[in-house]
Amino acid sequence: MSCGDPHETDCSEVLDHLYEFLDREMPEVDSAKFKEHFDDCSPCLEKYGLEQAVKKLVKRCCGHDDVPADLRSKVMGRIELIRAGEAVPEQSVMEQAVAEQQAQEADASARATRTTESA
């Protein structure tokens, strides 16, 4: 997406790193450039607002669930590979995370059933 207007920081760069900005994971210098860009570019500001709202909604609805450390590590590793352009996801990171979580829960349930049956 591009608004068509020239900016010091290109719209595509802003949108490619939007979650780094939202998560405050970028250097202050870059963050300042993004803030300036949002002041000048209403389409990017609108996208920022939408993504910020989605992030808040997810946090409110799902922020209380504990995520197993190994699952978090796998998902973060996959995200880093995708960001570096080293891997193209066969399925979305979220789909993969949900599938792995369901597999872990099924395994735990099966272990609990075996323990109950043997008692």
Rank of each mutant, 00 (worst) to 15 (best):
L81D: 13
V54C: 07
A69Y: 08
D65R: 08
R60Q: 12
K35N: 13
I82F: 08
V98N: 01
D66C: 09
P89K: 13
A108S: 12
E105A: 09
R83L: 05
A84H: 06
E117G: 04
K56H: 06
K33L: 13
E36W: 04
D70G: 02
P68V: 02
D10H: 14
D39E: 14
R114I: 05
M1Y: 10
V58W: 00
A87D: 13
K55L: 04
C61Q: 06
E80P: 09
D23P: 01
H37M: 05
V93G: 02
D10N: 11
K55F: 00
V54R: 15
P6L: 03
E36L: 14
M76V: 10
S92C: 03
V88P: 05
S92H: 01
P6A: 04
R60P: 09
E36P: 08
V29F: 04
T9E: 09
S42N: 11
A99L: 10
G63D: 00
C41K: 07
R78D: 13
V29N: 11
S12L: 12
L50M: 13
Q101L: 15
R78P: 07
I79V: 13
R111C: 03
F21L: 08
L22Q: 04
L22I: 07
V29S: 12
G49V: 03
C44T: 05
H7C: 08
A103I: 02
M94Q: 09
G77A: 05
A69Q: 14
L50F: 11
G63A: 01
V67K: 01
Q101I: 13
L22K: 02
E100N: 07
Q104T: 07
G4S: 03
E8M: 07
H17V: 02
T115C: 15
V29T: 13
E100I: 07
I82P: 05
V67S: 02
E8R: 14
P68G: 03
R78Y: 10
M94E: 07
K59P: 02
E25L: 10
T9P: 00
G49C: 07
R114P: 00
E36F: 05
